[in-house]
Simulated scan of single mutants.
Amino acid sequence: MTTRRKFLLGLGAAGLSAGAASTSWGGGDARVLTATDVHVKDYPTVAAVDWIGRQLEDATGGRLRLRMYHSGQLGRESEAIDMARFGAIDITRVYSGALNNAFPLTQVLSLPYVFDSVAHLRRVLDGAVGAQVLRGFAARELVGLAMYDCGARCFYNVRQPIRTPADMRGLKFRVPSSDIFMRMIRLLGGNPTPLAYGEVFSALQTHLIDGAENNLRSFHSSRQFEAARHWSQSEHSYAPDVLLMSKRSHDALAPRDRGLLLEIARASVAVMRRLWDESEAVARRSLFEAGVRMNDCDLPAFRKAVAPLLDDYHRVPALEALYRDVRSLA
């Protein structure tokens, strides 16, 4: 397996700096763009980026290709963001919650109970709000290529069903490094514990944490359900994933190649959504067959508990304007 250390050593051996626009393989004009994802090989976001690579190769006769490092081979999402900013990698798929603190416009997409459904989220991502958020990444040396929706995020834990916020009292929940998610857990009565995605399974096994929150597909593919046997349908967030590119790598491409890559990346959204819907249904059946206990939640009680968090963000004019646009598409 290629590790982050081996990858960066390889860049050094090739005489490439952290600002290299891309990795050259095999000489000539051929260029291989590197892409990363913490998810496993058959995860919909990984498969969608692989699809981008095939389309690029076909459209350019092999001149542009893409190599995917999946399963966190090159490190955590936070590390991938920095590697992309400085041009050590070209493309990365990142959960928007991990971007909240550095890219404020993503916050409106991560706030609890902003979206009513997957259909509502997709309308927002495909419209003016999605385009505005993608443009915002340019402020920190990144190019927003596309956004992938990833279902409703819900709570799961090793101890008990969670039907109301009272059931979360005193339990330790993993959260991404986002102020929004940390405060949300506190308002619901839990204790937030920021951890990298790849550390969650062992943390559940060792009871470093009692639970976490994520979408059903990730809960299944990470096999965290083997440790956490209670899934509670809280649907507290529909925060999407973002496909980002190093601005250095982007700017080093010929103009026609930039346009081609962006066009293919946007087309990959439909591919990812089809794969997501199919695999989520399979994952749900598999979890049921594995004996995971699933329960509904008192959603009005959850919305009431997190209302103070929403109230604070309503006071930020730029976010309030985006929030109104989001709700207008409900």
Rank of each mutant, 00 (worst) to 15 (best):
Arg153Leu: 15
His70Arg: 01
Val114Gly: 02
Ala119Asn: 10
Thr45Phe: 13
Val118Met: 11
Val143Pro: 02
Val129Trp: 02
Gln132Lys: 11
Met68Ile: 03
Val133Asn: 04
His120Trp: 00
Leu64His: 07
Arg159Pro: 09
Tyr113Ile: 00
Phe86Arg: 15
Arg67Val: 02
Met168Val: 07
Ser117Asn: 03
Val175His: 01
Ala138Leu: 12
Leu111Pro: 09
Asp126Arg: 15
Phe137Val: 08
Arg183Lys: 14
Gly72Trp: 04
Ala128His: 09
Ala146Gly: 08
Asp50Gln: 15
Arg122Leu: 12
Asp82Asn: 12
Val49Gly: 07
Glu141Val: 00
Ala128Thr: 10
Ala139Tyr: 07
Gln73Asp: 12
Asp90Met: 12
Val49Thr: 12
Pro161Asp: 09
Met68Trp: 03
Val133His: 04
Leu64Tyr: 11
Arg76Glu: 13
Arg76Lys: 13
Pro165Asp: 09
Leu145Lys: 06
Ile52Pro: 05
Tyr156Trp: 10
Gly97Asp: 11
Pro161Ser: 10
His120Asn: 01
Phe173Val: 06
Ile180His: 09
Asp58Asn: 12
Ala146Asn: 13
Ile89Trp: 13
Leu134Glu: 05
Gly53Ile: 04
Cys154Trp: 12
Leu99Trp: 05
Pro112Asp: 05
Asp167Gly: 08
Tyr69Ser: 09
Ala166His: 08
Glu57Ser: 15
Arg163Met: 09
Ser117Cys: 06
Pro176Cys: 03
Cys154Met: 10
Asp149Glu: 12
Glu141Lys: 10
Phe181Ser: 01
Met83Pro: 05
Leu109Tyr: 04
Val175Ile: 09
Thr45Pro: 02
Arg123Pro: 01
Leu66Trp: 00
Val129Gln: 00
Met184Trp: 08
Phe155Ser: 00
Gly62Ala: 04
Ala47Glu: 15
Ala59Cys: 06
Ile52Cys: 05
Thr164Phe: 07
Tyr43Phe: 14
Arg54Asn: 09
Tyr43Cys: 08
Leu121Arg: 15
Thr45Gln: 03
Arg169Ala: 15
His120Arg: 08
Gly144Pro: 02
Asp58Ala: 15
Leu134Gly: 02
Gln55Gly: 01
Pro112Gly: 10
Ala139Glu: 13
Phe173Arg: 05
Leu64Gln: 07
Arg85Ser: 01
Val175Asn: 00
Leu105Lys: 13
Ala131Glu: 08
Val143Phe: 03
Gly75Tyr: 03
Pro44Cys: 00
Leu125His: 04
His70Ser: 14
Tyr156Asn: 11
Ala166Gln: 13
His70Gly: 05
Val46Arg: 11
Ala131Tyr: 01
Met168Ser: 11
Leu109Pro: 10
Asn157Gln: 11
Ala131Pro: 02
Ser177Ala: 09
Thr45Gly: 12
Arg159Trp: 05
Pro165Ile: 12
Arg174His: 12
Arg159Val: 08
